[in-house]
């Protein structure tokens, strides 16, 4: 026992200061991407051709659009572009309320909105979630698990993962929703009492991610159930998930980056 106490003292206090302080992510972290259309050469589609998940598209007007819901945050596009028109910032904030809000054309992000008054009253201070993996590779699942460790300590925000959908206020869905899991996912969704939330996590959970085009899955959570929050990444960093959840619950006091608007990062 004395050893346990001694070890406890040695371990100290390890919980991250996020969200009060910047998460302090390293230089190579790839967060919110930025497109600089003025650098994008006409007639060049190198990034579009390099992208593993066809997340990049070049419109008829020659403007690039990057779909965060498909993006794996790899380096194929940045390596392919001779002009540096696509780049990743260290901004961890990515979560959005609507699928179309995940489309990036410049230096903007339509970040997740706070729930309506009634939902916020119900869930704002206590949110219980049930996780369902429907073809997730275990990376998103592992990061969701990491949210519960002493560093991210999800419990301090009143958010908790529970064992039964009947005890839950919502589902967190990972994976592209394989055909073999679609029925179980539907049953789990029906078992969550209304009003309920659905959070789609990771490129697979939003669009199918690296598995886009395979006939063995349905292409993400929204193909089966309505989704209230999309958290992009492959997998999303725990602070990206935390940011999305807190934003949804209206629990973030101020945005530390950008400033003026809490929801939209200005150009």
């Amino acid at each position: 026992m004395i050893d346990i106490i001694k070890n406890r003292i040695k371990q100290g206090y390890r919980t991250s200061k996020f969200p009060e302080e910047d998460p302090g992510l390293p230089e190579r972290f790839r967060g919110r991407p930025v497109i600089q259309p003025e650098l994008c050469g006409s007639g060049c589609a190198a990034c579009v051709e390099a992208c593993p998940t066809a997340a990049l598209e070049k419109g008829k007007n020659g403007l690039l659009t990057l779909d965060l819901g498909r993006c794996l945050f790899c380096t194929e596009c940045t390596a392919a572009c001779p002009e540096g028109a696509v780049s990743f910032t260290k901004d961890h904030r990515l979560a959005a309320s609507r699928r179309e809000d995940l489309l990036v054309t410049g230096n903007e992000a339509k970040l997740a909105e706070t729930l309506g008054e009634e939902m916020k009253r119900l869930f704002g201070r206590s949110l219980k979630l049930r996780q369902v993996s429907a073809g997730g590779c275990s990376a998103c699942e592992a990061e969701l698990t990491a949210l519960g460790n002493v560093v991210f300590d999800l419990g301090r925000f009143g958010i908790q993962f529970v064992a039964s959908p009947r005890h839950a206020d919502g589902l967190v869905i990972t994976g592209p929703v394989t055909r073999n899991m679609s029925e179980a996912l539907r049953i789990a969704y029906e078992a969550v009492p209304s009003p309920r939330l659905v959070i789609a996590v990771g490129a697979c959970g939003i669009s199918g991610g690296p598995f886009i085009g395979s006939e063995d899955h349905l292409g993400g959570a929204a193909s089966v159930v309505p989704v209230d929050l999309f958290i992009p990444g492959c997998p999303p960093h725990p602070v990206t998930m935390l940011d999305g959840l807190l934003r949804l619950l209206g629990r973030l006091k101020e945005d530390r980056v950008g400033g003026q608007d809490r929801r939209v990062v200005p150009d």
């Binding site: 993996s133 429907a134 073809g135 997730g136 994976g175 592209p176 394989t178 055909r179 073999n180 899991m181 179980a184 598995f211 395979s214 006939e215 063995d216 899955h217």
Partner: peptide, 8 residues
């Protein structure tokens, strides 16, 4: 249940 068609 997790079959996504990776080999294909």
């Amino acid at each position: 249940y997790q079959h996504r068609g990776a080999e294909r």
